[in-house]
Amino acid sequence: MTQPNDGTVSLDKVVKRFGTNTVLDGVSLDITKGEVVAIIGPSGSGKSTLLRCINGLEKIDGGSILVNGEEIGRRPTPNGRHPYAELKPQELARQRAHIGMVFQSFNLFPSMTVLENVTLAPRTVLGLSAEKARASALEHLGAVAMADFADRYPRTLSGGQQQRVAIARALAMEPSVMLFDEPTSALDPELVGEVIRVLKDLATRGFTMIVVTHEMGFARDVCDRVIFMEGGEIVESGAARGVFTSPINVRTQQFLQRVLER
């Protein structure tokens, strides 16, 4: 048993199927504390599904996923015939509280102000007092340069602003691991930069970050490691510069050629 909240992620032969379609085909991956990892690859390669499995939004069909040394979504039982039992929804919710997730489409709660969006989970899940949650929320909103917008409603913000609020909302839970699912893909091109700047800043602050992205510049310059996925498998994994300058696998070479040509 490792320390809780140590910020490690460990996947062992993870299999995920949708019906007869195998989306993740034996994915193994170890990520250490504070590591910033980019996952790249063509659409349909299983990148987003991998991310969604890590915080239990999708149930896996084989293998295991450990975050902070704790198995996600199930626990071992003494019963030999059924070695694992599925976790109850409350237990899964407790695990997720330590894992921050940022979605492609922001998913801010439209009926709440920016501040309410950020304070909701700290108040109801972590049990912070209203003042403490407010102070912490303003701090995190400040870190993404959105503190001045605390009383605005999401629909009055640009996509980039909404995404920065979504990042602050995830950070307010003080997670040990942050997952980003194509955080800039839904943004107008001129708004991508402001979100990338926030991600760069986070990368220097010691969070374990896993970023599914199409922003090759970000992957190359900011991430410690780049993982190339195709067909539900990890095809290549290595130090960011290495993968971009001298990819070993032919499929990686072809993919990078396609995306970097543009």
């Binding site: 915080n55 239990g56 939004l57 929804p89 409350q90 919710a93 407790r94 695990q95 997720r96 509280a97 330590h98 894992i99 921050g100 997730m101 979605f103 489409s105 998913n107 801010l108 709660f109 909701l120 989970a121 109801t124 899940v125 979504a166 909302r169 995830a170 839970m173």
Partner: peptide, 12 residues
């Protein structure tokens, strides 16, 4: 996405 965002935050 709204339900998933709530799930991801650990709201139960």
């Amino acid at each position: 996405g709204q339900i998933e965002a709530a799930d991801a935050l650990g709201l139960s």
